[in-house]
């Protein structure tokens, strides 16, 4: 670092006054880097993912090996998080369970975003017939009985984790696209949007460069909160034959299986519940940090 404080301050100011030297993404990254809470959350998420990937190395027991003699064993030194109704080690099942649950949760949200964001942007920004068409289709999806869809899907293509992700994404599309569309509507006539149009940007460029960054806040909120919904939907769908089939461990299903034992074997549901909350909390905090970092107004604010 420069020796003189005065000098360094000047450098900083100069840098910020000349954004050409740092791309918006670099700026965002550096802002994100200063948000310690967000970094911690990101590290936690990464940690959970690493644990899941490295499950075979970390799990103390085979997660699907039954041991009826040791069933419903309370947490102890032997079984740190206890055992379930079949005597399987809960810790090992939680470690392995992240593989399915994190994948389902994250992939569902990403797929919803990939499909929902463009739909919402197009509907909101372009408006007119296209808007009407997209939104009415979304209304139909909302009203369609999901359970019938699930029964049909499983009778047609059988069980599988990817089917759950597909179902999750399909049925959360209306929410994503509607929320985004609503936000787009409020800003599409803002000065900077009109200005960029006047400067000759085509619709795609306007949507991507000017509208999208300004509707990030609600996007981040719904996507970070819907991770838990997606994971839990995985559990319920596995009851209908979609999703990870037993004995594959999965947090949502573990939570559901533990429910009858709520008063006699509390550990069955508590630990998967904590994992679920941790994921959502971490993705929320990381999401908030991301929003702050990407907020176009933040640069003016802090300059």
């Amino acid at each position: 670092m420069p020796t003189s404080t005065l000098e360094s301050d000047i450098t900083k100011i100069e840098l910020k006054d000349r954004p050409v030297e740092k791309s918006p993404i670099q700026l965002a990254m550096s802002r994100f880097g200063h948000n310690r809470l967000a970094i911690a959350a990101l590290i936690l998420l990464a940690f959970l993912i690493v644990i899941s990937v490295a499950a075979p190395l970390l799990a103390p027991y085979n997660p699907i090996k039954r041991n009826i003699a040791d069933r419903l064993h309370a947490p102890s030194l032997q079984y740190i998080l206890g055992t379930d109704a079949l005597g399987r080690d809960s810790l090992s099942r939680i470690i392995y369970g992240g593989r399915v649950s994190l994948w389902v949760g994250l992939a569902s949200v990403v797929l919803s975003l990939v499909l929902g964001v463009p739909l919402g942007l197009i509907a909101g920004y372009l408006g007119g017939l296209l808007d009407g068409a997209i939104m009415r289709v979304m209304d139909l999806i909302l009203a369609f009985p999901g359970i019938i869809f699930a029964i049909w899907l499983v009778s047609m293509i059988g069980p599988g984790v990817n089917q759950v992700i597909l179902a999750n994404a399909l049925f959360s599309l209306p929410e994503y696209s509607r929320v985004i569309r609503g936000s787009v509507l409020t800003i599409k006539d803002a000065d900077y949007v009109s200005a960029s149009r006047a400067l000759g940007c085509n619709s795609f460029q306007v949507m991507w460069r000017h509208i999208f960054p300004n509707v990030l806040a609600p996007i981040i909120v719904i996507s970070s909160l819907s991770i838990s919904g997606a994971i839990l939907a995985g559990a319920s769908l596995s009851f209908l034959g979609l999703g990870a089939q037993p004995p594959t461990p999965e947090w949502g299903a573990m939570l559901a299986d533990g429910r009858p034992y709520i008063r006699t074997a509390w550990w069955l549901a508590l630990f998967p519940g904590i994992m679920l909350t941790l994921v959502v909390l971490a993705s929320n905090i990381a999401g908030d940090g991301l929003r702050d970092a990407l907020d176009p107004r933040a640069s003016t604010k802090r300059a």
């Binding site: 909160l225 939570l255 549901a269 679920l276 959502v280 909390l281 929320n284």
Partner: peptide, 18 residues
């Protein structure tokens, strides 16, 4: 409050009701 709301939001209804 953020921790509390997130916990609330990630708690499945079938658990919360019980």
């Amino acid at each position: 409050i953020r921790v509390l709301t997130v916990t609330g939001a990630s708690m499945p209804t079938f658990w919360f009701g019980l």
